[in-house]
Simulated assay, not measured.
Amino acid sequence: MLRVRVIPCLQLLNENLVKTVCFKKPGYIGDFINTARIFNELEVDEMCVLGIRNTKQNRAPDFQVLQHLANECFMPLSYGGGINSFEMGKEILAMGYEKLVVNSHNFQDLKLIERLAGHFGRQSVVVSIDVKKNWRGKQLVYSESGQRKTTLTAEKWAMELESAGAGEILLTSIDAEGTWEGFDVELTRNVTKSVSIPVIAHGGAGNIDHVREVVKKGGASAVALGSMVVYQKKDMGVLVNFPDRQELLNALST
């Protein structure tokens, strides 16, 4: 069994699975139910589903779609995208999801994290941090699908979210997301050194060596994969897949 969690991270836009590059130009992947069934057959240990554009478009999660996914999937699920109230989070967890991923609402009110963590436990609350370099090369946190810039650094924001009750961080480099060129290892390392909770590295994976690097050099506790698990290879067609477990085990054991 893999000591480091390797998690397929899927993007849901309306009722379709898509994949973006640097948070732009979502390309169609396929039907969410068929994709879920394939990951069941591949026996993945965990899966993350993100409803992109929900907050930006002031749209609530599609609870019917989420229920279909929960009914179909055998593995533990986490969901994020448009969660802005305790009641909404409670309803999603009641469907069978194990974790909630909260991002944009945190900039308005950290009490949602506090309340969710207090009621369901910290292990149920994942906070998502999206980071992009400005023209000076400084890494800044963004919200609303990477559209709204803040003045926060990832390290400072991560510490605030941990203090509020977050149990885990999903850390995404917007600049690397969907590029296949590797994780932002420096960003990951800076955040992992700033907090004591697990950090899931996300954005940029193109091969198993990238996974190994962000774990060994970046200190990531887990890795989320997007393009690698929905495409054959870079610039090739859709193929839902998962890396060879023995190769992953070998890479992460050395």
Rank of each mutant, 00 (worst) to 15 (best):
residue 234 K to S: 05
residue 7 I to T: 02
residue 218 G to T: 05
residue 227 S to L: 03
residue 223 V to K: 06
residue 202 H to G: 02
residue 237 G to M: 07
residue 140 L to S: 09
residue 231 Y to C: 09
residue 51 G to W: 03
residue 117 A to G: 09
residue 113 I to F: 06
residue 113 I to C: 06
residue 18 V to F: 03
residue 85 S to K: 04
residue 63 F to S: 03
residue 161 L to A: 11
residue 179 T to H: 02
residue 116 L to E: 01
residue 196 S to T: 13
residue 71 N to L: 14
residue 175 D to E: 12
residue 176 A to P: 00
residue 106 N to V: 10
residue 38 I to R: 15
residue 64 Q to T: 13
residue 167 G to W: 08
residue 94 A to N: 13
residue 224 A to V: 02
residue 250 N to M: 15
residue 10 L to G: 01
residue 112 L to P: 05
residue 125 V to A: 05
residue 20 T to F: 01
residue 209 D to G: 14
residue 99 K to D: 01
residue 83 I to T: 08
residue 105 H to Q: 06
residue 149 K to I: 13
residue 24 K to W: 01
residue 145 S to Q: 11
residue 13 L to A: 03
residue 110 L to W: 10
residue 161 L to D: 04
residue 175 D to L: 11
residue 201 A to W: 12
residue 34 N to V: 10
residue 242 F to K: 08
residue 79 Y to I: 14
residue 169 I to S: 02
residue 162 E to D: 08
residue 72 E to M: 13
residue 31 D to N: 10
residue 82 G to I: 09
residue 227 S to F: 02
residue 2 L to C: 07
residue 120 F to N: 03
residue 110 L to D: 06
residue 40 N to H: 12
residue 4 V to P: 00
residue 220 A to Y: 09
residue 170 L to R: 04
residue 249 L to V: 15
residue 74 F to E: 11
residue 203 G to Y: 05
residue 151 T to Y: 14
residue 188 T to W: 07
residue 62 D to N: 15
residue 245 R to G: 12
residue 65 V to S: 13
residue 145 S to D: 13
residue 3 R to S: 09
residue 72 E to Q: 13
residue 101 V to D: 03
residue 253 S to M: 12
residue 74 F to C: 12
residue 52 I to K: 00
residue 41 E to T: 13
residue 166 A to Y: 10
